[in-house]
Simulated scan of single mutants.
Amino acid sequence: MLHFSVLASGSTGNAFYVEADGHSFLVDAGLSGKQMESLFSSIDRDIKNLSGILVTHEHSDHIKGIGVLARKYKLPIYANEKTWQAMDGLIGKVDTEQKFSFEMETVQSFNGLSIESFGVSHDAAEPMFYVFHYQGKKLVLITDTGYVSDRMKGIIKDADAYVFESNHDVQMLRMGRYPWSIKRRILGDFGHVSNEDAALAMCDVIGDRTKRIYLAHLSQDNNMKDLAKMSVTQTLEKKDMPVGEQFELLDTDPKTPTILTEL
């Protein structure tokens, strides 16, 4: 079966694990090498067995540990050309034979596991996230986007499980300590999705088979787990999508992995 865990999610670092049909992948490694090894130990998996690392974009909270892990464990790294260019000098030397291309809006297959990439709206070179398809199951990873377009919704619609950005509470952000330039970036079309906007997007993509939605990439300073869950729940229930019946909302954490889950 397809198994996955949100190893870490938040403004301090992000990493996601998925395995199926004899292949396993790490999506991003936004923590140190030692922290990544500890996270893998928590889900009883070994980094040396990875089939590769998939990169979403070049921001440090997504690539901090990639170079270290790639060199230590001789892992393939997959990214699009513009992201490879943007990462140059940020992850240290990586051997040419470990560098693989995974362009936006394409699909790569590894035995029965198909991985589909799609573009998002974020202030990076060419940010993209992934949909995992295996034996009729569909798992979506979507964070780091200023909004969820109709094109994105079409790609991610009716998944069995979502890891969905719910970055900030708008009022907390507006009243918080960040300078206005950073607030404007986060609130803009190339920033991050708020709790309410995430919920509105969910209303358009949740399908009959959707069972789990993980609220991800919560801001350390401008959100809280309970607040995100309450805000998303209220918006969904206003749209006649009661949480806890067909599907459940689940937390993610910047330091503690979610349980390795089977779809």
Rank of each mutant, 00 (worst) to 15 (best):
R185W: 15
T261G: 02
E248C: 08
N195M: 03
I63G: 07
S11G: 04
S41A: 12
G67K: 03
W84T: 04
E105P: 01
H57K: 01
Q171L: 10
D197R: 12
D21F: 06
Q135K: 15
Y130A: 04
R209D: 11
K239L: 00
F102D: 03
E19R: 14
M104R: 14
Y134G: 00
L227D: 03
P242S: 07
W84M: 07
S38P: 00
S231L: 11
L39W: 04
T145P: 02
T83S: 13
P179I: 02
S181C: 02
E105D: 14
A79M: 02
V68Q: 00
Q246W: 01
K99A: 00
Q108E: 14
F102I: 09
K211E: 13
I77H: 04
L260Y: 07
N167G: 00
A29N: 09
S114C: 08
Q234Y: 05
Y214L: 10
G89C: 05
G154N: 15
E248D: 09
E165W: 02
D95Y: 05
G207S: 09
R184H: 12
H133P: 04
D46E: 15
D226V: 03
K48L: 00
S149E: 03
G13A: 07
A125N: 13
K211T: 12
G136R: 07
D88E: 15
R212N: 13
V18G: 01
E103D: 15
Y130V: 00
P254C: 11
L250A: 08
P179H: 04
Q246L: 06
A199C: 08
G112D: 15
K138C: 06
I66N: 08
F110T: 01
P179G: 04
Y78Q: 06
T56Q: 12
L200N: 04
I142Y: 02
A70Y: 00
V107A: 06
M241P: 04
Y73N: 07
L2P: 01
V170A: 06
